[in-house]
Design a binder for these strands. Structure first.
Lengths: 227, 227
DNA sequence: GTCTATAGTGCGATAGAC
DNA sequence: GTCTATCGCACTATAGAC
């Protein structure tokens, strides 16, 4: 699977994500014209991610956000009910999309070896397209209130479980040699997350997402597939 | 190398770290009695790490810190000149210690295989002892001003370089098979950092730092040492 | 060496005009 | 649907009493 193909197939754009958010939050969003809402939501979310990922969500004031979006304080509050609400909406939507895409691509693959490759690549490719969302979700998780924080933890464990399942399945089919599937999945997750947590490093070294994917798959396979 | 031995040898305690901080900042710290300063610094740093690691350094107000330490606003400001100064001091001291300990343990080891093991274990063991400091440093790096931020990046690259050097040395001695030392070192760092970034996960699963260390070393060796 | 009191700033949120 | 004006509050930092 090439990044370009993935990118074309998933059809993830800011507009599409914001349209989903609009449809799911019709009640709490005060403005009713879809076209207006989607346009402003794209603007607001992009600005939030840009500002937050530079200096943190808490350090970003709503006045900063006004300047970055060109909207007034009053206008902003037509689209979310509080600053925390904005934080939660971004996190929730990112999580939902990640689960959907990962599950879909893993199911499409046939055997454990293909599933592993599909899981690694779709995780990396998705985080490449939505780098800002993923970085934001990781770094701002602890600012969520207790209930939302639990959902974030559950999300991490859910995607990790997808990897555990693939490893166990491969083991059952005698294709993989896995002593500790949970630990193996944990470090795989860590390496996948490093791709969006340390963008500055990989950009500087001019490593493409496909190179990183191939490297990771080779690294993992050398451990779970005995010669 | 066992964790207990490492822990006994490095002799890292909050008191020792705070004594160093006192000696290096005699000018800016208004109080002069070493005993008083060290006692209060231990209190302040522990409280800062506890509060910050829960909800973030920015979200922690100095009033929170007063309550947690039992000190007044005025007293706090005798030990640092601004909230940012507190942030920088913690980061700087953590970085300094990490570099010192890692370098020391790697140099003690003889051949590349031993060096790799020493590097992985001393990194993990140190982050186990100083988990709060490491977590804090990672999560709060972006709140540093430009100059301090550069130092943090340099620190990450420096410790990574230690791994690159070991890998290259092993390759030169025909003991390791390494195609891409930089990428290999990058993912090793990612896995090492996961230990303190996801403490909740490893605690929940009752994985000890020694288990994690052995697992990681096995994982890495299977890639770089062909059968 | 530590305290209390307070200055001065900037925050999130809202009401009501247009 | 968007704006401006403003409220009340919490923040960092400091000055001066003890």
């Amino acid at each position: 699977m090439k990044f370009a193909d993935f990118s074309r197939n998933v059809m993830i754009t800011a507009e599409n994500i914001c349209r989903d958010i609009f449809l799911e939050n019709r009640d709490s969003i005060k403005i009713k014209k879809e076209k207006v809402v989607v346009k402003n939501l794209v603007n607001i979310f992009n600005a939030t991610l840009r500002l937050s990922n530079e200096k943190g969500f808490h350090a970003m004031s709503l006045r900063d956000l006004c300047q970055e979006t060109g909207l007034s304080m009053g206008a902003l509050y037509s689209y979310f009910s509080s600053k925390d609400d904005l934080l939660e909406t971004i996190q929730e939507q990112g999580r939902r999309l990640a689960v959907k895409v990962l599950t879909e691509y893993i199911e499409k693959a046939g055997n454990p070896e293909e599933k592993l490759e599909a899981a690694v690549k779709s995780h990396l490719y998705l985080s490449e397209i939505m780098q800002d969302w993923f970085f934001f979700s990781y770094m701002e998780t602890r600012y969520l209130d207790k209930e939302e924080h639990k959902k974030a933890i559950a999300g991490e464990l859910y995607t990790e479980q997808l990897f555990i399942d693939i490893l166990e399945q491969g083991k059952a089919q005698k294709k993989f040699k896995v002593d500790n599937a949970a630990l193996t999945a944990a470090v795989i997750k860590a390496m996948l997350q490093d791709w969006y947590l340390k963008r500055w490093k990989y950009s500087r070294r001019v490593v493409s997402v496909e190179e990183y994917a191939e490297f990771l798959i080779g690294f993992i396979r050398s451990y779970i597939i005995p010669d």
